[in-house]
Simulated scan of single mutants.
Amino acid sequence: MPFQSFTDYLLLEKNYSKLTVQAYLSDLESLKDFINNQYGTDSIKDVNYAQIRTWIVSLVESGIANRSINRKTSSLNTYYKFLLKVGDITQNPLSKHKALKTSKKVQIPFSEEEIGTVLDELNFDNSFEGYRNKLIIELFYSTGIRRIELVELKLSSISLNNKTVKVLGKRNKERIVPLLNSVKETLANYLNKRNSLEEIKDSEHLFLTKKGVKIYEMLVYRIINDYFSQASSKVKKSPHILRHSFATHLLNQGADLNAVKELLGHTSLAATQVYTHNSIAELKKVHLKAHPRSKK
């Protein structure tokens, strides 16, 4: 297998998930295909920065976002650092590369009213898909898990008695997240419907399609987008916006930043702090309304 030693390094030493490793390998293959077409060689070990720069320019010209290009070059940089470590190269061609400038994304969370409209007013029928879709939305909003984490949830990850869910996050790091009583009820209803499917081809994973196979990320995105399109006029309606809403609403209600960090599965507070701008806005309102000298 191409890049086998690098793959082993990412999986065994860096403890990256299989999906993350697949993304790294895809980026390496992208450069490999490019230099093969442009320079007649498929050895990316021997490329120089000028050749990589030509590849980067081609990505820009094809309309790929700078943020995505930076991720690809980061994958390459990790690969070249690995080659340096094992002695396959003597110089990293990306050692002086500077990331492309990216615009700061402003993520606007759903309001509590919008989420209330979806969960309390929209129709989720009593079918397998109805219970499944409602459970997906409730889990996103009540736990803040990522889309891929939800897709990969196992039946064994759920403890109805303890009202917890075990989540496998980035770099295979596990965390335990509590379940709300309302989610526990929806979960029990979904499991009854799941057990009644005509055929279950995947007995391990929690979320299935009606054909009995593991649910996939694009379907999860479509479920969120379809339901929230009925309740929100926001441009972006995705699982990540629900995760964003979870964090923002907790912080607005006074939750400790460190606690939210743990629930989200972040490794540093810096990653969690991107969700605080809405909380600051809420605090300003409270401060202005309540402070004795605010009217002076």
Rank of each mutant, 00 (worst) to 15 (best):
K285T: 15
D120F: 10
E138P: 09
V274H: 05
L76S: 02
N92I: 12
T102H: 02
T186N: 06
L206R: 02
G144S: 11
N252T: 13
N70M: 06
N258K: 12
S26Y: 07
I215C: 03
K285D: 15
K72M: 10
N15R: 09
I241R: 01
V213W: 01
V183P: 03
L160M: 10
E199F: 10
H287M: 14
K154A: 08
L208W: 06
L76A: 04
L76Y: 01
K237H: 08
Q91V: 15
K211W: 15
P109V: 14
N48G: 14
Y131S: 00
N66Y: 03
L197H: 02
Q91K: 13
R71Q: 08
Y227C: 12
L12W: 01
E204A: 11
N252K: 13
T41N: 08
L187G: 09
K166M: 13
P178F: 06
L150I: 06
I158M: 03
T267I: 00
S74N: 02
N195P: 07
S68R: 07
L180G: 12
S233E: 14
L19I: 07
P2N: 13
P178V: 08
T54N: 14
K193M: 13
L160E: 05
D120S: 15
S17F: 05
Y49V: 08
F228C: 11
S62A: 15
R67M: 01
I52S: 00
L150R: 04
G130E: 09
S238L: 07
A255N: 09
S5E: 10
N77R: 03
I108N: 01
Y275S: 05
I158S: 01
R175P: 12
N48M: 07
S74L: 00
L208I: 11
L122T: 14
I64W: 02
G130V: 09
N126W: 03
Q22W: 04
D256K: 04
D8E: 12
T276P: 00
V177G: 03
Y216H: 13
G130H: 06
L187F: 04
I52C: 10
Y275L: 03
S111N: 09
K210Y: 12
I69V: 08
H249G: 13
K214H: 06
N126P: 02
L283Q: 09
D8V: 07
P292V: 10
A255F: 11
S279R: 07
E149I: 04
L269H: 04
V274G: 09
K236P: 06
T102A: 09
S157A: 10
Y131V: 02
A188E: 13
K163T: 14
S17N: 05
D33A: 08
L191N: 04
I56T: 07
N258A: 04
Y216N: 13
L83K: 01
L119W: 02
G212D: 11
K14M: 05
T102P: 02
K72D: 07
N66W: 06
K154E: 14
H244Q: 05
E199L: 14
Y39W: 13
E61P: 11
S229F: 05
L11C: 05
H291S: 10
S127R: 00
S58E: 07
I148G: 07
Q107G: 10
H97G: 05
W55I: 02
P2S: 10
H287P: 03
N195F: 11
S238H: 01
S233A: 11
Q273E: 13
H97M: 10
V118G: 04
N161W: 07
Y80H: 00
N189R: 03
V151D: 00
V86F: 03
A270P: 05
G254H: 01
I52Q: 01
